[in-house]
């Protein structure tokens, strides 16, 4: 069943560790993906992104010369980006809070901590497919809405311009 669902989709894996790259490729192919492209760092990945226009990106965080954070910013903000809306899942062993926050503020769609399990990877992809998020463009940021859910108990402060109900929805 999965083969037919995923066979027309394209994915890009950005990871400097060849073993982890091979593992992720195998998992995506188990889903039935036939077009899985690879890059070893963010600079290489941006070139592949422009050429292949993938539907989904899985990226590591720490890579040289361009890491997953800068790559994500490039995808979201660059005029050269072929698809600033492409879903990006950051797959990393970095679990420190400040790194997760930096990844979120760069425009990462989902965050997946290593070690990888099939269930967790598929859940992240399902989240993207089943509950696509709005994108927000404001000064210094473009990417998925960083407010995951409405907190009914939150009484402010309301920092966004559109919190005053002047939401411009395209």
């Amino acid at each position: 069943m999965s083969g037919a669902a995923f066979d027309h989709l394209k994915a890009l894996i950005v990871e400097d560790n060849e073993h982890m790259r091979a593992l992720l490729r195998s998992l995506l192919m188990a889903l039935g993906m036939k077009n899985v492209f690879e890059a070893e760092n963010g600079a290489e990945a941006f070139a592949v992104l422009r050429e292949k226009t993938p539907d989904l990106v899985l990226t590591d965080l720490t890579m040289k010369p361009v890491d997953g954070i800068d790559f994500t910013r490039e995808v979201r903000l660059s005029r050269e980006s072929p698809n600033p809306y492409v879903p990006i899942i950051m797959v990393t062993g970095h679990t420190e809070r400040h790194r997760v926050d930096t990844a979120r503020d760069a425009g990462v769609t989902e965050f997946l901590a290593k070690p990888i399990t099939a269930q967790n990877l598929f859940l992240r992809i399902a989240e993207i497919v089943e509950r696509p998020r709005s994108y927000v463009r404001c000064e210094g940021y473009f990417g998925p809405d960083r407010r995951r859910r409405a907190e009914e108990s939150h009484t402010g402060p309301w920092r966004r311009h559109d919190d005053g109900f002047e939401v411009e929805i395209i």
Binding site: F6, L31, G32, F122, V129, P132, C138, D145, I169
Partner: peptide
């Protein structure tokens, strides 16, 4: 704060509803 523009799902390139249903089944 500076003005923010929100772009709702459906207004940007993404998975079609039919694709999403099939992908969702496959993922589960």
């Amino acid at each position: 704060a500076p003005a923010a523009t929100r772009i709702a799902p459906g207004a940007y390139p993404g998975f079609s509803r039919a694709d999403a249903t099939r992908l969702s089944l496959a993922l589960r």
